[in-house]
Amino acid sequence: MRDRDPEGRARNARPRDGLGRPLPYGVPGVERQPEGVPRTPSESLVEAQRLLDAGMPFHAHEVLEDAWKLSDGPERELWRGMAQLAVGLTHAARGNTNGGASLLRRGAKNIAPYLDVPPHGIDIAGLRDWAAALATTLDTASGELPLAANTPHLVRR
């Protein structure tokens, strides 16, 4: 029988660790981010940064994915790219260096059109450079990536 959420939609109820990896039923896990939460761009960035700083890029990805999926305007690809950067970091932290590099490059490509006029104080240039450097590192890396040394800053400081 499939796990279902309160609305009856299929949803895996297995607990997850800080990187979003499923754990066995009954094992304590990390609280999952609620899905479909409407936030302002600023709220999305603050929450995603908090989660990145806490070593939870999978959860940050879910926040940024909400911003992407709830956006229908000209910033839709920006939020998609931001979510791809966070999930790329997730894959790298899990040891999937090929997938991580691929997603980091795809995310950097999707945020690049916003370079000239970065919305919401997002550090597009810094994120693009961070993603390119990390993807290059992952091309020759193996094993899990330490998050503390590789966490990006989403907004200009």
Rank of each mutant, 00 (worst) to 15 (best):
R11W: 11
G107N: 05
I124S: 02
L23M: 09
D129L: 11
S102I: 12
Q84I: 06
W68M: 09
A92R: 06
G100Q: 11
L19E: 03
G88R: 12
Q84C: 12
R157G: 15
G18K: 11
E65T: 03
N12Q: 09
R80V: 02
R2Y: 10
W79N: 06
M1T: 14
V117H: 10
L154Y: 09
A67F: 04
D66C: 00
L104S: 00
T140Y: 13
L19S: 08
Q49D: 05
A60L: 03
A108N: 02
P15Q: 11
P118I: 10
G143T: 13
V87I: 15
A67L: 08
E47V: 12
P34N: 07
T136F: 03
R32Y: 08
P28M: 08
Q33E: 14
P118N: 13
P74I: 10
N150Q: 04
A148L: 13
R11T: 08
A125W: 01
P146Y: 05
N150V: 07
G26H: 02
R32N: 00
K109E: 10
D66M: 01
A125E: 00
A54S: 14
D116A: 12
G55L: 10
A149K: 07
L78A: 07
P24M: 07
R157E: 15
N110H: 13
V30P: 03
V117T: 09
R32I: 04
L51S: 04
W79A: 02
G81P: 05
L45F: 09
D116H: 10
A149L: 12
R105S: 05
A13N: 07
A13L: 14
H91S: 08
L23C: 09
R50K: 13
A92M: 09
G81Y: 04
V30L: 12
L104C: 04
G81T: 06
S102H: 14
